[in-house]
Amino acid sequence: MTERDPAKPAQASDTKPDAGAEQALVRRAKDGDLQAYDELVQRYQERIYATIYHMTSNHEDANDLAQDAFIKAFQALKSFKGGSSFYTWIYRIAVNKTINFLKQRRHKGHMSLNELDFNAENDPDLVALVSDKTPQRDAGLNELKEKLNEAMQRLSEPHRLVVALHDVQGLAHEEIAEIMDCNIGTVRSRLFYARQQLQGYLADYLK
């Protein structure tokens, strides 16, 4: 299986051309066909995992929560009426699971930072950001990443989710509104507030 380029943001619209095939897979999975469900999992695993990871900043937690979300979705598949796309539906399950988990974990403030992948060091935007704009010129990518994660964890869950879905994963406001079950104005205002907060937390690194 080929893995997606991490620098390219995931788009819900990527799946629209074969929506018919997706519906057929959902129908088969509803009848208990695990092979069909396996295909659905493979379609969305990267995006679901990435969203959860950007919310938790922890690989193990993201792995467990993503698996739990897909298992819960399979168990609840009978109740999926098709009012929204399967993509939105599974996203909602994953997001709700993650928010519940974070509420329980809030007191711990636990964070595990995974290694950056090789491509990050070659990203011109990031190299410029680290070497030219930061006051501490010796601050490396890992330090910036660490500070970013710390700043993200200081946001409330809805604000963090909007940033993760829009600025990191590249989803449109409309898609985020559907996933979060709120209107687009709310998404925009949350995004603006979250960016302001992050800007404040990372002032020393972004000037």
């Binding site: 990203d123 800007q199 972004l206």
Partner: peptide, 17 residues
């Protein structure tokens, strides 16, 4: 928020093993 958005792009490189 341009600088912030470019910094957030860094998170796209955080990948599982």
């Amino acid at each position: 928020f341009d600088a912030l958005r470019r910094a957030l792009k860094l998170k796209r490189h955080e990948q599982p093993p």
